[in-house]
Amino acid sequence: MPSDSVVIAWGAGEDGQLGIGNIEEREWICQVKALQDYSVSSVVGGSRNSLALCDDGKLFTWGWNQRGTLGKPPETKTETVPSQVKALGNVKIVQAAIGGWHCLAVDDQGRTYAWGGNEYGQCGEDPEKDETGRLLRRDIVVPQRCAPKLKVRQVAAGGTHSVVLTREGHQIFVPVRVQGPEKVRLIAVGAFHNLALEEDGTLWAWGNNEYGQLGTGDTQPRSQPIRVQGLSGLTLADIAAGGWHSTALTNEGEVYGWGRGEHGRLGFGDDKSSKMLPQKVQLLAGEDIVQMSCGGTHSVALTRDGRIFSFGRGDHGRLGIGRKVTTGHPMEVPINLPPPKTVSEDEEENAEGSWRANLIACGGRHTLAIVKWSPDNSNNNNENNTE
């Protein structure tokens, strides 16, 4: 990773999911130093583990491995520092996802790979059953090809299911194609529900709906995609799904949230009730949000100028604000790191600039982000203006 860009983490760490070499939780951000020499392009948070993807296609995993979710031998229960998934070392991985206890990845040729728990067929293989028809636990500990007949551009993993988006814009809810949405641009998967954003801006949802996370105005589950209500007239740029809540982001940087509101994960301040229809997160109005990420019980927002806001359940330090407070009011996460090593020791004390985030990723009870050093050129600009 370039010396002016680093991976940071905060929150629960009991399975090593922060990647900092121990199982401590952190209430403030900390640097994942094992990745500092790699050019990390994206990070993903799972329920109890994490992964990082590099520009050259290398995939690193860390955290909980008891179902083979790290793509490592099962005798390795947890890993507290990132290490490369050697089984994928000969391909260039361009995107990846973590579910409840399985992982998915897609390479630059559109080939998909899966590993981890497969008792529900979430790794793309028919689950095995005993003589009574009961599903048998089967773990796939070495990444293997899945959906081999498809050319894929995005994978998404839920609690015990998987969805892939083909290059033609079709969704495959492994192992069958999802009927309804066409020309899908993005997919997002929560614990037990799914979102699909079409190129024309139409948002579809299906799956579990007990807290209104499908945005249909009711709590009835749907086995087929149904349009999310309350977003007409908006141009959507991005979507995100958490454990039992959902968010949508407009081109204008406005955030809409719906689903389970307990602990304030929707960002509606003191109103922690669940919402069956999307509502604008007024407390983020004017912040120009460019990315949202949803965890199990918390949410994180990224602004265009690189600031991070978090809200929701605060125990285990998952909000990154230095105290274990639960709040529905978005709070800015301080990015307190020293200047990068490109700044000499003599210059460090007077170095001017700040760390700005360019990507965020919520896990179950932790969060990851990539931050880049942005020098303050105001002095140079002032000097130029006086010439």
Rank of each mutant, 00 (worst) to 15 (best):
N358D: 14
G353K: 05
W355K: 03
P375A: 08
E387M: 06
V371S: 05
R365H: 10
A357F: 09
N379A: 13
L359C: 10
G353V: 09
T367K: 01
E387P: 02
L368F: 11
E345M: 04
L359D: 05
D346P: 00
D376L: 06
E383T: 10
G353C: 10
T386S: 13
C362F: 02
D346Y: 02
N377M: 10
G364P: 02
V371T: 14
A361Q: 00
L359E: 11
I370S: 04
W373H: 04
W355S: 09
S378R: 08
S354F: 05
T386M: 05
I370V: 14
N379C: 03
D346S: 10
D376M: 05
E387D: 13
E348G: 01
H366C: 08
T367V: 15
G364K: 01
E348I: 05
N358K: 12
N350R: 07
N382W: 13
E349K: 10
N350M: 07
G364W: 01
S374G: 00
C362Y: 01
G363V: 01
N385V: 08
E349S: 13
A361Y: 00
E387C: 07
D376H: 06
E347H: 02
S378L: 09
E349R: 06
N377G: 06
N379V: 12
S374K: 08
N358Q: 13
L359I: 11
L359Q: 14
N382E: 15
L368S: 07
N381I: 14
N381L: 14
V371L: 01
E345Q: 09
V371F: 05
E383P: 00
E347F: 00
I370D: 03
R365W: 08
I360V: 15
R365K: 07
E352T: 13
T367Y: 03
A351K: 00
